[in-house]
């Protein structure tokens, strides 16, 4: 069980860190937003492996759900102007 957790965590940390690199370096803002949502999702699995289901639920609901949507709403509001100009 412990070794399974370690293998899972290594995969997760590689995925999270490459996601973070994408989020920070991406040219398109939409890609960066999606990557940051993916980081939150991976982080919630991290919390599950670290024996904290409460935090995992919060991260999945707020970090991956609400924050990502909020970013997209703001992105749409700032981009619509450029499209019309």
């Amino acid at each position: 069980m412990i070794t399974f957790n370690i293998v899972l965590l290594i995969f997760l940390s590689v995925a999270t860190i490459s996601g973070a690199l994408v989020a920070v370096t991406a040219k398109k803002t939409a890609v960066a937003i999606l990557a940051s949502g993916a980081i939150s999702l991976f982080a919630s699995i991290f919390f599950l492996v670290l024996a904290s289901p409460d935090v995992a639920m919060t991260e999945a609901a707020i970090g991956a759900g609400l924050t990502t949507f909020l970013f997209f709403v703001i992105l749409r509001k700032t981009e619509s102007h450029h499209a019309e100009k």
Partner: peptide, 20 residues
């Protein structure tokens, strides 16, 4: 597992879905 913050966030998501 869960509580006021998680439940409140789920309710907020429901409102967001309707608003979208």
């Amino acid at each position: 597992p869960g509580g006021g913050f998680q439940g409140g966030a789920v309710i907020g998501t429901a409102i967001l879905l309707i608003a979208l």
